[in-house]
Design a protein around this nucleic acid. Structure first.
Lengths: 205, 205
DNA sequence: ACCTCAATCAATCAAATGATTGAGTAGACA
DNA sequence: TGTCTACTCAATCATTTGATTGATTGAGGT
C-alpha cells in the first residue's frame, strides 16, 4: 500500500489518486447499471459521469470485463458491510430471524439499488466465471446466515422441530430476493411476506 | 391495402409462410438468449441460425424491439400451454398444491430454458414497457394460482387458518422461481424446498 | 532546477451491429 | 401472358463501442 497520510478526500487538485478514481468509476458504473442494466453499460457513459477521458478510464480499469468485476467487488463490499453491522451472539433463533428481517428492511430502504445490481450480476454469473466467483459466494453467505438461524431456532425451540434449516433458508432467501427484485412490490406486501415467513417457520404453541 | 378474406393458414409453398418464419425466428432467438443472454442477442446470429438473410429477418420482424416482444409473446404462449394442462376443479387445497408442485417439477425437467428466458425478460421489463406488459401479467397469473389454492386450502382445512394467501403466494412463487433460476440448485434441493414449503403452510393436526 | 512517473487527454482505430436499399424470385390470378 | 404480391438476398450504410496511441501535465523526490 501507498504511504498515504490521509486517504480521505482532499479538496481535489486536478488529479485524483488511483484508488479514488476506481471507487468513483465503480460508483458511476453502478448508477448506470441501475438505470440501463448491465446490458446498457458503456465505458463512455461511465467516463462521462466520472468526468474523465475514456483513455483515463482504461488506464485505471484496463478492460470492460475488469470493470464488471470491479462492480462486483464493490457490491460485495457493501454487502459485507451491511451483513456485519449487527452482532447476533446470544440471541434466540427467533430473535435472530427478526434481526435478519430488520436488516432486510433497512437494506431495501437505504440501498434499494444493491439488489438490482446484484440480480444483474447473478444473471451474468451464468456466463461469466469471474463474476460468478465473486457473486455466488455472497448468496451462499446470505443463505448460510439463515441456515444457522434456523438450526439454532430448532434447537432452542423457537421454530418447528420438523423445520429443515437448509430448505427453510432457500425459501427465505428466495422469497426475499424475489420480492426485493420485483418493482411492483409495495412495502406493505413486504411486511406481509415477512410476517408470513415467520408464521411458516415458528413453532405453534 | 389488403383485401383480407381469410387471414388464416394457406398450405405452405416452397417458401415458408410469414408465420412459420416468425416462429422459427422466435425459436432461434430463444436459443441464443439461453446461450448468451438477452445482452448477447444479435440479429445476425438469429438470421444465421434460421438460415436466412439479415434483410429477410427485418422483413418479418421489423426492429429488434419487436423481436424481443416476439420472444416475450412466444414465452407467454408456452407458459399458458403449460399452465392450462391440468384442470384443478374439485380438488382440495392441498391436492391442488401438489399438482402445482408437479407442474413445477415437470417444467423444470422439460423446459428448463423457459425460466431462464423469463428471468431475462423480467429483468428487461424494468426498463422496457412493451416487454413489461407481456411478462408481468404472466407472473401475476402464476402468483394468482397460488393465491387461489391457499384461499381454498384455508377454507377446506388443508392449510393453517392463519395463512395469508397473498403472502403465501409471494413466498411460494418467490422461492420456486429463485431455486429455478440458480444454476447451483440440485434436483434434490428442489425436493427439499418443496417439502418444506408444504410443511410451512399445512395445518398441523 | 531537473528527473521520474502516475495520471490525463485528444484523436483515432477496428470491429460489431442494427438497419436500409435495390434488385431480384416464385407462386397466384386475371 | 402479364402483373401483382409475398418473400428473399447481396451489398452497404451509419452508428456505436471497446480499445489504443502518442503526447502532455504536474506533484514529489533529488
Amino acid at each position: 500500500m501507498k504511504a498515504d497520510s490521509t486517504p480521505c478526500a482532499f479538496p481535489a487538485s486536478k488529479r485524483e489518486s488511483g484508488d479514488e478514481r476506481r471507487i468513483a468509476v465503480a460508483s458511476a458504473a453502478r448508477q448506470i447499471i441501475v438505470e440501463k442494466g448491465l446490458e446498457g453499460l458503456r465505458t463512455r457513459d461511465i467516463a462521462a459521469r466520472v468526468g474523465i477521458n475514456i483513455a483515463t478510464l482504461h488506464y485505471h480499469v484496463p478492460t470492460k470485463e475488469a470493470l464488471v468485476a470491479l462492480v462486483a467487488e464493490s457490491i460485495r463490499h457493501d454487502f459485507r458491510t451491511q451483513a456485519m453491522r449487527h452482532p447476533r451472539v446470544g440471541k434466540t433463533g427467533l430473535e435472530q430471524l427478526h434481526m435478519e428481517f430488520d436488516d432486510f428492511r433497512e437494506t431495501t430502504r437505504e440501498m434499494p439499488e444493491l439488489i438490482i445490481i446484484l440480480t444483474e450480476l447473478v444473471e451474468r454469473a451464468r456466463r461469466d466465471a469471474t463474476v460468478a466467483e465473486i457473486v455466488l459466494p455472497m448468496h451462499r453467505f446470505w443463505r448460510g446466515q439463515f441456515v444457522d438461524i434456523f438450526r439454532l431456532g430448532v434447537a432452542d425451540g423457537s421454530f418447528r422441530p420438523d423445520l429443515d434449516p437448509e430448505a427453510g433458508a432457500m425459501i427465505a432467501t428466495g422469497a426475499l430476493s424475489d420480492c426485493w427484485r420485483r418493482p411492483d412490490t409495495s412495502p406493505s406486501m413486504i411486511e406481509q411476506a415477512l410476517a408470513e415467513l415467520e408464521r411458516a417457520f415458528i413453532r405453534k404453541s
